[in-house]
Design a protein around this nucleic acid. Structure first.
Length: 940
RNA sequence: GCCCAGAUGGCGGAAUUGGUAGACGCGCUGGUCUCAAACACCAGUGUCUUCACUGGCAUGCCGGUUCGACUCCGGCUCUGGGUACCA
């Protein structure tokens, strides 16, 4: 009798659902274990084979931990706000809520099909008002708090206001904007409401701020870097420019130190922690104010330009200063003679993205403003340049150029023919390249001549501080996080604006009792004619019928920055989760997801978690104790090639087939792999695929359009998604689960390839044949196992347990295969052995395990809460060990010795061996190394 | 460019702490069963040499440490992830 996986799997999935087998409650009698998957964005393409990889692994751990006696929380939900649904809405007019709902339904059906042991009663969706009510609530708390450096935590703004009223801000040690002025209590108390509120924004943990964005005038919207290809919008091919815009920001920089320090207490990979440390980029240095030479500058020019440097010791080597081309000072510093050069340069830089600017470092570009600053140490005039390698958003947007010590500065100095001054006697070949050494004694360096690095730095810093023109400073690369999106499909910001005198209007929060602030209905999902975000279209959408709401929405990461708490108490309408639930489940014990979230989601989530802890709402400083990054299942992408000259207003886009593309200048564009077959594009499907391609024209080869191919990550934006449904239908969920784990180490990236899935399928059938003979008779007997059978079983128990404890999911599959092969060879059909095997298999192949468990006479549904087999080491004891004997590190023989033989006896035995004798050629060995129960090495 | 990974047979991979490189599986080759095929089972399978035994070579490339290196160190090459509005 063949195993009927279809019927059996369906039967058990229904049983688990009907009996709520995996529903979880707080249970103080058992230790808790929280295993969490990074929840998916429910894309229109459905679940792809890359998703389950992590989910299968976490499900295996969840099932394993249940067998080990833990009370396991294992939930799933959806990060359901996001761009693709909105993009689809723009194309079709369909409300994103409808498509999102449909997509989620598909996802749930697909997930349930794979036999995951989720407690579905706890499902969350970030786009559900019952959920985003609490996202908005957390946003409000951020607005109502500031970061107090003395308390080293967030404190209420209300307490800050009280202190301002008593003693101004001179004793306040708080994280705030750079340009926050000093003020006394009298000054504070004398301020208008508007002035006070403006000042408080400099302290709040979320606040409106100017930031530079990719603005696409033709689409009237801001684009992600992702949506820009070759400087034009991927959608439509329109030009994009850099533009300053008021955006909500999150003062994540307040938590920079705690975000770095907290990494020491979590069990995450070193690679990931290193990435976060680098992202935060704490560097110790000094800030220095350079006085602007007033003789050439325009009216209203600044008195000083401040720079941050990690090498203040090189300050005597400064031969120019560079400020960012978009820096607000530029107009004031530009002389009439340089104006046309500067304007042209600024315009060119505005057309480039930040990524372009950082990537292209080989080509030096820049422009001289015509103005100078004065080096405070030697009173020399230093020319001020603009250059695109300085970004306005980093530090002060200005850097001092030291060509002898920094290669980028050196390149710049060569290009503009600026002096390259040596500053250390240890610097070598500085006419050829920069030398950033800190060794040697300073030269050409005024007050630090003859000193070493440490002394010089201290001397200079002291000198600056005494004169009030500089100080030691810790600078972070981390920037405050932009928290606004000019989009519809996201959480509305629970804020409105009033006190609008002229263009100044201030944000205020709505009342907590008015939450959730729901997304209003709009007619279409595009910006307004005046360039406002889509919410500007909502008719009569005003706070108390009077005040403008914030029209941007929250970014994708808002809802995902706290969701693990909502699972603890998903239906709670009074709080984001009850204190009882939070204090029972505490933090995530195992978190599984892709490494592409290293510096996004995982940093923002840690930030919000620390904030919630400061408020006393959650107990743990770090929300995820252990984290594993599953490697990406890579996709096979297809490309079409758009001819560049066919892009623009009123033109039909032209696409050239792969083989002919070298004859044109083209932009490669991803095309949905589902409308491509054997790399041949379905032309009609392509025209229907995206509205801007409906008039597409093609240059064909042999009457066909051949697409390009590349292996890259499988993702909705690359349109290369492969669906697991087909596989479940063909070979069953158990086989799919086994196969995905068998592919290789969880952390490693690999392209999706179904070759080899037969091996997993055969394994399932082999297991079945341990229970049934060829005639379909159930053959399991209640007999006493032999030592050989017990040895096979316990070898397996040991290895499965060890491997699961170190999350080596692929080797467990091999171990199970070896065990089943060996039991097959032994013709073992004994209940005592097979019953334990079934438990060992059950985390991987829950369906067939349930079936066999019941066939062995157990109660249905109880295998999930059975006891993991106990390993008995005494069953594996061997009398002898087979030593590999190597000569000069190469194995030449194998000799068996008693397990407890002493090295001297082994050495004697080895030297007597004829193979060894042959290699010795009568001579005595130089050395014999005996590693007990491992190896013997004879050195000639 | 910068930050972080990875590279082992025809293919996916194993080797957990420096100790037999290639477990397990796919594929392939030969055989058993069958009218035939599928399934299943048995045997072989890194490469060169050889009838065979044996031996040489071999973990991306170059060099080093060690009795011994896929594993540690230095220098490269290529591939993937991130690079702040994809999530």
């Amino acid at each position: 009798m063949e195993y009927n996986f279809k019927e059996t799997e369906q039967k058990w999935r229904k049983f688990w659902e009907d009996n709520q087998t995996y529903k979880t409650e707080i249970d103080h009698a058992k230790p808790k274990y929280y295993v969490l998957d990074m929840f998916p964005y429910p894309s229109g393409a459905g679940l792809h084979v890359g998703h389950p990889l992590g989910y299968i692994a976490s499900d295996i751990i969840a099932r394993y931990k249940r067998l080990k006696g833990f009370n396991v929380l294992h939930p799933m939900g959806f990060d359901s706000f996001g761009l693709p649904a909105e993009q689809y809405a723009i194309q079709t007019g369909q409300h994103p809520a409808i498509t999102t709902e449909e997509n989620i339904t598909t996802y749930i059906r697909q997930l349930k099909q794979i036999g995951f042991s989720y407690d579905w009663s706890r499902e969350v969706r970030t786009s559900d008002a019952k959920y985003y009510k609490w996202t908005q609530w957390i946003f409000m708390q951020l607005f109502k708090h500031y970061y107090d450096k003395d308390a080293n935590k967030a404190l209420p703004i209300a307490s800050l206001v009280e202190r301002f009223a008593v003693s101004g801000n001179k004793d306040i040690n708080a994280v705030c904007d750079e340009d926050t002025p000093n003020f006394t209590a009298e000054e504070w108390n004398g301020m208008s409401e508007q002035e006070q509120q403006t000042l408080l924004l400099k302290f709040r943990l979320t606040f409106p701020d100017d930031s530079v964005v990719n603005w696409c005038p033709a689409l009237g919207t801001v684009l992600a870097n992702d949506e820009i290809k070759d400087g034009v919008s991927e959608r439509g091919g329109y030009p994009v420019e850099q533009k300053k815009m008021k955006q909500w920001a999150m003062r994540i920089t307040a938590y920079a130190d705690r975000l770095i320090d907290g990494l020491n207490e979590v069990d995450w990979s070193d690679a990931l922690k290193e990435q976060q440390r680098n992202w935060i980029g704490r560097s110790t240095g000094a800030s220095v104010k350079f006085k602007v030479d007033a003789s050439t500058v325009q009216e209203n020019a600044p008195e000083f330009i401040e720079v941050f440097t990690t090498r203040v010791d090189t300050i005597y080597g400064v031969s120019f200063m560079v400020i960012a081309p978009e820096h607000e000072y530029v107009p004031f510093l530009t002389t009439a003679a340089q104006k046309s050069t500067v304007d042209e340069y600024v315009k060119w830089v505005a057309s480039r993205t930040e990524l372009d600017r950082m990537s292209e470092v080989k080509k030096v570009t820049g422009a001289f403003t015509g103005s100078y600053v004065i080096n405070p140490f030697n009173d020399e005039k230093v020319p001020i340049f603009l250059a695109d390698y300085v970004l306005a958003g980093y530090g002060t947007g200005a850097v001092m150029g030291v060509p002898s010590g920094d290669q980028r500065d050196w390149n710049f100095a060569k290009y503009f023919d600026l002096p390259i001054v040596p500053i250390l006697d240890a610097q070598k070949d500085i006419e050829e390249q920069a030398d950033n050494t800190k060794e040697g004694k300073y030269i050409n360096s005024g007050i630090i001549d003859g000193m070493g690095y440490k002394e010089a730095t201290a001397t200079l810093t002291k000198w600056l501080e005494e004169r009030g023109i500089g100080k030691g400073k810790i600078q972070y690369r981390l920037r405050n996080a932009v928290f606004s999106r000019q989009r519809y499909w996201g959480e509305p910001v629970p804020a409105y604006f009033k006190n609008g005198s002229g263009d100044v209007s201030l944000p205020y929060l709505i009342e907590e009792s008015e939450l959730p602030l729901e997304l209003p209905v709009i007619d279409k999902y595009l910006p307004t004619e005046t360039g406002e975000p889509p919410l500007g279209r909502a008719e009569g959408w005003k706070y108390k019928g009077e005040y403008e709401y914030e029209l941007s929405t929250m970014p994708g990461w808002a809802g995902s920055s706290w969701y693990w708490y909502r699972y603890m108490d998903a239906q709670n309408e009074q709080e984001f989760a009850s204190q009882e639930a939070i204090n029972y489940w505490k933090a995530v014990d195992l978190y599984l997801g892709g490494s592409e979230h290293a510096t996004g989601h995982l940093l923002y989530s840690r930030f919000w978690n620390k904030f919630l802890k400061d408020l006393g709402l959650v107990p743990e400083e770090e929300f995820a104790k252990k984290l594993i990054n599953q490697g990406m299942i890579q996709g096979r992408s297809n490309f079409v090639y758009r001819v560049k000259s066919s892009v623009g207003e009123g033109k039909n886009p032209v696409f050239v087939s792969f083989g002919l593309k070298e004859q044109y200048e083209t932009t490669p564009i991803h095309v949905d792999v589902n409308i491509v077959s054997n790399d041949v594009l379905d032309l009609n499907a392509f025209k229907n695929w995206r509205s801007d391609f409906e008039n597409a024209e093609f240059i064909l080869e042999d009457g066909k359009y051949i697409c390009g191919v590349e292996v890259e990550k499988m993702s909705k934006s690359k349109y290369n998604v492969v669906n697991p449904d087909v596989l479940v239908d063909k070979v069953g969920a158990d086989t799919l689960r086994l196969y995905e784990m068998f592919l290789g180490p969880l952390e490693q990236a690999k392209p999706w390839n179904t070759n080899g899935i037969d091996g997993s399928f055969r394994f399932i059938k082999k297991v079945w044949r341990l229970f049934y003979d060829d005639l379909g008779n159930f053959k399991v007997k209640d007999e006493t196992p032999t030592p050989a059978e017990l040895k096979v079983l316990h070898t397996c128990i040991k290895k499965v347990e060890e491997d699961l404890e170190r999350y080596s999911f692929n080797t467990v599959v091999s171990t199970l295969m070896i065990c089943v092969n060996d039991l097959g060879s032994l013709k073992c059909a004994k209940k005592a052995i097979l019953q334990e095997l079934v438990i060992l298999m059950s985390p991987y192949t829950p369906h067939i395990a349930e079936e066999l468990w019941v066939l062995l006479g157990n109660e249905a549904g109880t295998i999930s809460y059975a006891t993991f087999p106990k390993f008995n080491a005494s069953l594996l004891v061997e009398a002898n060990f087979d030593y590999p004997i190597s000569i000069n590190g190469k194995v030449r023989a194998n000799i068996s010795f008693p397990t407890d033989a002493i090295p001297a006896d082994i050495e004697a035995g080895v030297l007597a061996n004829e193979v060894v004798q042959k290699w010795l050629e009568g001579k005595a060995p130089k050395k014999v190394i005996v590693v007990p129960k491992r190896i013997v090495n004879v050195v000639l």
